[in-house]
């Protein structure tokens, strides 16, 4: 992939690949192009070169809405819930594009996040930070996506909540979803990653299994603070 916001390219030729039942983590310093890469995958900026494939199908030319329909779901870092809607309405909007019965999926999500079920009729904006993050992820899952992308899901939450969120993500992964996470909390994220990329200056600087990168001296020194 190569692209940017017009003007200079922010990402150049970086490759990212993810499979079902896999968590891929993208880490890197500020301004490395992490968010840009994610926006490119979502279709919010267009690519100059390269392509995006989903199950072998080229989706590079699709609009963001069509990509959602094709099976990509995204949880933004901020403003990721409908704060003035109830939890259940958040889920229903998540399933906006689906024509079939969504009740079943809602129940599945209530099983995954039991707290959601208790608060189903509460406004999402009134929930605690961790619960809001759960609403955000749940909303994205309502399309039954093939790939779930999370932008810094643990930014600004307490370590306990962070741990919980990562646990849920593993559960989701096990249900057959491919997961891409962009993270600043690199150490913790690498711990749960099946595969990880370190982005620097818009390029893949390192890539490998999560543990492998954690043990890599150079990566440790430059990004994980020793």
């Amino acid at each position: 992939m190569t692209g940017g916001y017009g003007g200079e390219d922010i990402i150049h030729g970086c490759d990212i690949e993810v499979d079902r039942n896999q968590i891929v983590v993208i880490v890197g310093p500020n301004g490395a192009g992490k968010s840009t890469a994610m926006k490119a995958m979502l279709g919010m900026i267009s690519l100059k070169e390269g392509s995006l494939k989903l199950d072998g199908l080229d989706i590079s030319k699709l609009t963001p809405q069509d990509r959602v329909a094709a099976g990509i779901a995204f949880v933004p870092q901020t403003m990721n819930i409908f704060s003035e809607l109830t939890v259940e309405e958040n889920l229903e909007i998540g399933a906006f594009l689906r024509e079939d019965n969504v009740r079943e999926t809602i129940e599945e999500i209530y099983n995954l996040f039991p707290a959601m079920k208790d608060k189903r009729n509460q406004l999402a904006g009134e929930l605690s930070g961790g619960q809001r993050q759960q609403v955000a992820v749940s909303r994205a899952l309502m399309t039954r996506p093939k790939v779930l992308m999370l932008d810094e899901p643990t930014a600004g939450v307490s370590p306990i909540v962070m741990k919980e969120i990562f646990e849920r993500i593993i559960t989701i992964k096990n249900s057959g979803v491919a997961i891409v996470i962009v993270e600043q909390n690199a150490k913790q994220a690498l711990n749960i990653a099946d595969f990880a990329y370190v982005l620097v200056g818009g390029e893949n600087k390192f890539s490998g299994e999560g543990q492998e990168l954690l043990n890599n001296q150079e990566v440790r020194k430059s990004f994980l603070g020793g």
């Binding site: 963001p64 959602v68 409908f82």
Partner: peptide
């Protein structure tokens, strides 16, 4: 309530 997220929801 949230224009961007509405777009992401299709």
């Amino acid at each position: 309530n949230n224009e961007d997220l509405a777009l992401l929801s299709g």
